[in-house]
Design a protein around this nucleic acid. Structure first.
Lengths: 220, 220
DNA sequence: TAGATTGTTAATCGATTAACAATC
DNA sequence: TAGATTGTTAATCGATTAACAATC
């Protein structure tokens, strides 16, 4: 039985994974916690602590095997198989996400976009088929464990969430700037695209910089 | 001299502000910390603590004046005037951000998009003029305190960041899935659109839900 | 006044990180 | 062996929250 991994650690794993993939791409075989920390913009002790939750995959005096770490981390993140993703909303945001390297590159399989526009239904956008609202339920049923991304206008976001939850979806990623209500057993995460802009505005107004901002990288 | 506001609090202010604007829209004159907490998905004591950093704007036995709180919070966030935003990259993501209510609704003035595509330069997309790369420096100079949003392909993100920093930009919001290096006095925040997807994947894989996830809302 | 709710203190909790023994 | 680096402990730090006096 694996220990519970702290949420703060879970949120950093994708950052490490991105750095590790870059290292692998550059044919780096091993990496030390110090180097990984530098590249990810965090403290070396934190890196070792975080990685220790995955198991003991380092070698003292040597460092971590990049390939092994990528494998173990991908496994922990559930990225080994292709996980189905359904994007609700085929507007600019939906298409941006469909094209996004961070989506398609990382083991996610975007199976469809859903839209109400008759001009889009039945076509492919960015290589992804667009289906009408009636296609939601069959898609969710056919793709067990899928993640539904809500990239619709905010006024229909709740309605769409209700529909996909009714169809059995258990994981939602919401980009609409509204608070969505879902049953307790559904895991929903919200990304507020305007939030970071406001945080930046706060610091710009005061001519300040946060003392240290996790995952926010600065010059080496 | 105002106390330093903890970064965790700063990150929650936009969430409160969104809820307050909704309340205001529904003609709610006052709100208690308990109600605000419920709507924002956090603890009531945390709401009071967070709000106390802005000053004492509540009334014991009554609650907070919605309008006053919106005003004070907007001021703290530097959203009173229109803050100029320049979007680098007029692809789907850039256009999605240009259209995004969370950007334009909240006191941000998107002054231009920058792109290399000759077919787009000189036109308006979503009502925003598109200028070529040579327009960057004059734009940054003309809009002191502006925020530059990087919505370009990842392979040119660093180059673009270097250019806007050289032109004097002090606040960057990066959507490209790469680690950008900027001088120490520049405030950069990165949004990894794929990160939350991986976090969701982690919990889906384990059939778990995070015990409590800040700002992530659930059923009431 | 009685009831409600803030603002703040102080306790708790969890996350970060320095330090170092283990060990390659 | 000597040098390097992990894995983990324990101290530190900061954030959360229960509790309650202040007060509308």
């Amino acid at each position: 039985m694996s220990r519970a991994i702290p949420e703060a650690t879970v949120a950093r794993l994708p950052v490490y994974l991105r750095v590790l993939n870059e290292l692998d791409h550059n044919s780096q075989k091993t990496v030390s916690s110090a180097r990984l920390a530098e590249l990810a913009g965090v403290n070396a002790a934190k890196v070792r602590k975080d990685l220790s939750f995955l198991g003991s995959y380092g070698t003292r005096g040597v460092g971590y095997d990049v390939g092994l770490l990528i494998f173990q981390m991908s496994r922990a993140l559930g990225l080994t198989g292709e996980r189905a993703v359904i994007i609700a909303g085929a507007g600019h945001l939906g298409q941006a996400l469909a094209n996004h390297r961070g989506f398609s590159d990382r083991g996610f399989d975007i199976v469809a976009m859903i839209d109400v526009d008759p001009a889009k239904i039945g076509t492919k956008l960015s290589g992804i088929p667009v289906v009408g609202p009636e296609g939601v339920a069959p898609l969710v049923l056919a793709n067990a464990g899928c993640i539904v991304v809500i990239a619709t206008p905010q006024n229909v976001a709740q309605e769409v969430a209700d529909a996909v939850v009714a169809a059995g979806a258990k994981s939602l990623l919401n980009f609409a700037p509204v608070v969505l209500t879902v049953p307790d057993e559904v895991n929903i995460r919200s990304v507020d695209l305007g939030l970071e802009l406001q945080v930046l505005s706060f610091y710009a107004e005061r001519d300040e910089r946060p003392r240290h901002s996790d995952g926010q990288q600065r010059s080496a």
